[in-house]
Design a protein around this nucleic acid. Structure first.
Length: 711
DNA sequence: GGGGCAAAATTTTTT
DNA sequence: ATTTTGCCCC
């Protein structure tokens, strides 16, 4: 079976799939059939060599890519194949689950996200009493990250005047340890430690894995490289796949030199180049080649294609960001009229903040869209609150969540109570003990609040083992009267927030069904999965135009791609203007954006854009000049388009939410309730409240974003 | 301790 | 422009 499939590949692809004599580096250009090669290679090993799927490790960049890869291999093999596919972070979590004790952590550890990290640093900075203007928590956070990534030495910051940096770093790590918690970098760092400093563990995994594949190799950092090396250098059973021109995460520690080091460290490494592009039209590919040709930090390769030249690349100059958004919206509508499916269209931008205006316009024009990234579901306040409750119930050492939860909703535990709890926690006791100890010195009112919290934790802990996830969520919201709190604090959109919590319950239920886990193990897994979930993981495959940052577009492809905001200072971004290395990274980013497009590429920029409430003039990006002029077609501005559309006037009083047309019965679909007929619509956009009748559940009011519009 | 108001920050990309 | 934070007074 697989033999026959391999016959259909071009000679480079074929070689990449069937070569196993030494370590293999595949330099895969954009759209060169990389995913195909990797999945075939896995299938090939299973079928030809009889490797057990679970003993093949494939590392991908996102959880979604991992899931897809597993599915595609199973498709190829016509059956279940439990290939060990995961991200570096998830892989390290697995390692640490079994061996965390060896690096001084208990197995039921907690993972801190960027937000947790920031608030922890905030407390530390306050404690040691430094100027938080200079010692900005976010900045310190990224400094710590850089040190842990191995990008810089901790001492290097002292030269820059951060003479307390080492102290802060030390305290930070100490506190993490006390909480039995890892931050993102720690996962990799300690994962690496297990494999490099503990020979028995190292041996075990080296023996276990028959073969290791690494996707998106150009975006691995030093620590990840060490992990790869530890797992495979001995047997040379490794294949890494990457493209130096698509390295867009150096700011996160990604290191292009990993590509160079590979040939050095892995002796007799074989290099296969995939330079034939199957994705883009001739015009798009020529433009991409021309653009990336301006970079100097690259090995150099030139993609070619048999595809037709196709349409010229369109370039639109807008007066301002509003007109740009309007152009994008109108063009999308026209495309949809000519039978392009919404799901075939993507709009990219450099920064998340640009999404808003495009979103508004699409909504007003009734285009169905989805936004990837931005304020993610798990970053919403109400979700973080409930998660924090789950965390204090589960982790008695989670000192961050206990403060989040202490007085939310308000229960009379203000600064004074907080200080008291903090005092006890500093003595090294658990959350619950600290709360109990605080009881004594507290006022009547505070005591009441403390008792409530203690009750929630103790009761919750008891219920863990036998309650279903949504029941536990329900327990938390009802005992805290969380809905009342939302109603009071968020008068405008409290219902949407309540729905978000319901949705959390649903997601949790699904997770529970899918994994079959129970009790503490279930909660542990769920919370860690939530922390490691990425933007791309939420991409749905339905009939919606996709809006996202270029970073989030990595690895994807669309027939039609818009790249908006091509302005100096925005793209390339103003923070990248001071060095040529940074400009080159921006250019790679542009290259990634261009090469996502299969058929139609539409670029736009605005002569004036709003920043912080006021307009600022802008110039078109240098990158537009790097596209050969004969490939470009300037598309004219519609005369007085602004007036006609009414974009300059106030918003219309009522505009239907995305995708809902005004007449005809509208049928919607909900994950849990199934199909429903819309009765009422309140508000606009993804937060619009839709009341619909569902056959098995009766009338329900749901927020737009949880619904699919079927007709 | 909490409500109300003024000041300040926000916007680079993310596992 | 909008959202978050910080301060003051009850």
């Amino acid at each position: 079976m697989i033999n026959k499939l391999v016959e259909g590949l071009n000679s480079q692809q074929k070689e990449a799939v069937t070569y196993f004599d030494s370590p293999l580096l595949i330099l895969a250009g954009a759209g060169s059939g990389k995913t195909r090669v990797i999945t075939y290679k896995i299938a090939y090993m299973i079928e030809k060599f009889g490797y057990e799927p679970e003993r093949i490790l494939a590392v991908t960049f996102t959880n979604k890519a991992a899931r897809e890869m597993r599915e595609r291999v199973e498709q190829l093999l016509n059956g279940k194949a439990e290939v060990f596919v995961s991200t570096f972070h998830a892989f390290c979590v697995k390692l640490l689950k079994s061996h965390s004790v060896r690096v001084g952590f208990k197995p039921n550890f907690l993972i801190l996200d960027t937000d947790d990290k920031k608030s922890l640093l905030k407390t530390i900075l306050k404690e040691i009493n430094v100027d938080t203007e200079f010692y900005n928590p976010f900045l310190i956070g990224s400094m710590i990250s850089n040190v842990k990534n191995g990008t810089v030495s901790p001492e290097s910051f002292e030269y820059k005047g951060y003479d307390r940096f080492l102290d802060i770093f030390e305290i930070y790590d100490k506190k993490l340890k006390e909480m039995n918690a890892f931050d993102f970098d720690d996962l990799l760092l300690y994962g690496k430690k297990l494999l490099t400093e503990h020979e028995d563990i190292h041996r075990r995994y080296v023996d276990y894995f028959k073969y290791v594949l690494i996707d998106e190799y150009q975006d691995t950092n030093g620590i990840q490289y060490e992990i790869i090396k530890a797992l495979t250098i001995e047997k040379g059973n490794v294949c890494v796949v990457g493209d130096e021109d698509q390295c867009i995460y150096t700011w996160r520690g990604a290191n292009i030199s990993n590509i160079l080091n590979f040939e050095k460290d892995f002796s007799e490494a074989k290099v296969v180049k995939l330079e034939k592009n199957y994705r883009c039209s001739g015009v798009i590919l020529t433009a991409a080649n021309a653009v990336i040709g301006n970079n100097t930090i690259r090995k150099g390769k030139k993609l070619f294609t048999d595809n037709e030249d196709g349409e010229s690349i369109r370039l639109f100059e807008a007066v301002n960001d509003q007109e740009e958004a309007l152009f994008v919206g109108k063009t999308i509508k026209k495309l949809i009229d000519t039978d392009v499916k919404p799901s075939e269209i993507a709009v990219f931008y450099r920064t998340n903040s640009q999404s808003r205006i495009i979103e508004d316009t699409l909504r007003r024009q009734g285009v169905n869209y989805q936004i990837i990234g931005g304020l993610r579901f798990y970053e919403r306040k109400e979700i973080k609150d409930i998660i924090a409750y789950l965390r204090v119930i589960l982790f008695d050492e989670d000192k961050l969540s206990v403060f989040r939860v202490l007085n939310t909703p308000k229960r009379g535990l203000g600064t004074a109570a907080e200080e008291r709890v903090k005092k006890y926690l500093d003595e090294g006791v658990s959350n619950l003990e600290a709360l109990k100890k605080s009881l004594e010195e507290s006022s009547v009112r505070q005591r009441e609040g403390l008792r409530e919290l203690i009750h929630i934790i103790e009761e919750g802990r008891e219920k863990l083992s036998h309650l279903k996830p949504y029941q536990l969520v329900k327990f938390i919201t009802s005992v805290t009267r969380y809905e009342d709190y939302l109603r009071k604090e968020y008068r405008e959109d409290w219902e949407a927030r309540v729905d978000n919590i319901t949705e959390l319950g649903n997601t949790f239920e699904e997770f529970s069904d899918r994994t079959g886990l129970k009790g503490e193990e279930l909660y542990l897994e769920f919370l860690n999965t939530v922390t490691l979930s990425s933007d791309q993981d939420e991409i749905e495959d339905d009939e919606k135009v996709t809006l996202m940052t270029i970073h989030a577009s990595k690895g994807l492809e669309f027939p039609v791609v818009f790249i908006s905001g091509l302005e100096e200072g925005l793209f390339p971004h103003s923070r990248s203007l001071d060095s040529s290395e940074q400009i080159e990274e921006e250019r790679r980013l542009f290259y990634v954006a261009i090469t996502r497009a299969k058929k139609i590429l539409i670029l736009s920029y605005a002569k004036s854009r709003r920043f912080f409430g006021s307009y600022r003039p802008s110039e078109k990006s240098r990158f537009t000049e790097e596209i050969p002029v004969h490939l470009l077609k300037k598309v004219g501005r519609k005369q007085r388009a602004m007036e006609k559309s009414g974009a300059l006037n106030a918003k219309p009083a009522f505009s239907s939410p995305s995708g809902l047309k005004k007449k005809k019965p509208k049928i919607v679909f909900h994950k849990k309730f199934g199909k429903g007929i819309v009765k009422r619509v309140e508000g606009t956009g993804e937060m619009a409240k839709i009341t619909a009748y569902f056959a098995d559940f009766g009338e329900k009011t749901v927020v737009m974003k949880f619904l699919k519009v079927l007709a």
